[in-house]
């Protein structure tokens, strides 16, 4: 497929109901951190953005949400795909982005480089959408916090080694902080800033 047709194709076939369905999966997944939510609707963004990450972009991004893209995504047709289908403008300033997208295997910089919100407006923060190799099968981490009855083990595969340090630092500045959507294939695992993670 040529670059132009990649840019114009791959959005939701039925945007109203697809966005509702993807949002509900995200809402349930943020309300129950550590559970894996399967998206019932697919998008087909240009490589290297994954399908689930593309669906998150189509569901939540628009002209009111500046988007930051990893270097590889920024160089690809993804930049124009997001701009065309959502109206969001792509920014190079991490701390101005409401959403930040990373393809599988991309280097993830320290979370404190993104918008963390302020003590008065902790909601003015970046949500990171990070595609990983798989949502299971990695280093097991015990998750606790709101939305989790006692504890739940999460084991996303393909996160950088420093992830736990980044996350612990993020948890320490609550109510400020980033929120995280991990994606793989057609599924998501959401970690709101309230979730505490520890090695098993």
């Amino acid at each position: 497929m040529g670059t132009q047709s990649q840019i114009y194709a791959g959005a939701f076939a039925d945007p109203v109901f697809a966005a509702q369905s993807v949002f509900r999966t995200l809402m349930d997944s943020f309300a129950r951190p550590g559970t894996i939510g399967r998206l019932s609707t697919q998008s087909s963004p240009p490589s290297p953005l994954g399908n689930a990450s593309g669906a998150v972009a189509l569901t939540l991004c628009d002209q009111d949400t500046a988007v930051w893209l990893s270097p590889a995504l920024a160089k690809s047709a993804v930049s124009q795909w997001i701009a065309f289908h959502t109206g969001a403008c792509v920014t190079e300033a991490k701390d101005e982005a409401r959403f930040a997208f990373f393809e599988k295997g991309a280097a993830v910089p320290g979370f404190d480089q993104f918008a963390l919100g302020t003590q008065e407006y902790p909601d003015r923060s970046t949500t990171l959408v990070v595609e990983v190799e798989a949502l299971t099968g990695g280093q097991p981490l015990v998750a606790r916090g709101p939305g989790i009855k006692t504890e739940i083990v999460v084991a996303p595969k393909g996160l950088p080694d420093v992830f736990l340090d980044f996350w612990t630092a993020n948890r320490a500045i609550f109510p400020r902080g980033i929120d995280l959507v991990l994606t793989a294939e057609d599924s998501v695992l959401c970690l709101p800033r309230t979730t505490k993670l520890e090695r098993e």
Binding site: L26, M27, A31, P122, S125, T127, P146, G147, P175, D179
Partner: peptide, 8 residues
């Protein structure tokens, strides 16, 4: 709503 859930 997603922000509200993240900051109870």
């Amino acid at each position: 709503i997603l922000k509200a859930i993240a900051i109870p």
